[in-house]
Structure formats: C-alpha cells, structure tokens
C-alpha cells in the first residue's frame, strides 16, 4: 500500500470533494481517499500492484482538477 498526497488548484466548492472522493473510491486498487478542502489536497492510499500513481492522477485530472504536484 502506498499513500500519496496530490496538490490541486484551490478547491472552491465542497461538493467537488464528494466528486473526487467517489470517483477515486470507484477506481480499482484505491484503498482510501481523503480530500482536504482547505489545503486543496487529496490523500490517496492505493495498491501499486493494481493501480499506479499516474492512473490516480489521470482520474483526478479527468474530473477537471489540475494536479499541481504530488508527494
């Protein structure tokens, strides 16, 4: 299991939190998701054998939120 933090552009509507959360939860290999509204970050724990960090990024960006950085 790997946990990564993705820095997004300033999140404005808390409803987008639910969107990102649901989308990632439905992604195979993702164990847990936490969207941090105030710091505009997404904390994802996932199984690297099933899903890569790039895949996770693609899901977030596919929803229309630019990923500015990860760590």
């Amino acid at each position: 299991m790997t946990t990564k933090n993705y820095q997004l552009e300033t999140l404005t509507c808390p409803s987008c939190m639910a969107k990102i959360e649901n989308a990632l939860r439905r992604t195979k290999g993702v164990e847990s998701v936490e969207v941090l509204f105030n710091s505009s970050r997404v904390k994802v724990t996932f199984d690297e054998l099933v899903v890569s960090s790039d895949d996770v990024k693609r899901v977030i960006e596919g929803l229309g939120y630019k990923v500015l950085g990860e760590k």
């Binding site: 409803s15 987008c16 969107k19 649901n22 439905r26 929803l63 229309g64």
Partner: peptide
C-alpha cells in the same frame, strides 16, 4: 467527467 463515475455534482 463526473457522470462517467456516476456522480451528479453541481
């Protein structure tokens, strides 16, 4: 993009 994941956002 949201609907693809069956999410109805604002």
């Amino acid at each position: 993009a949201g609907i693809k994941y069956r999410i109805l956002g604002i």
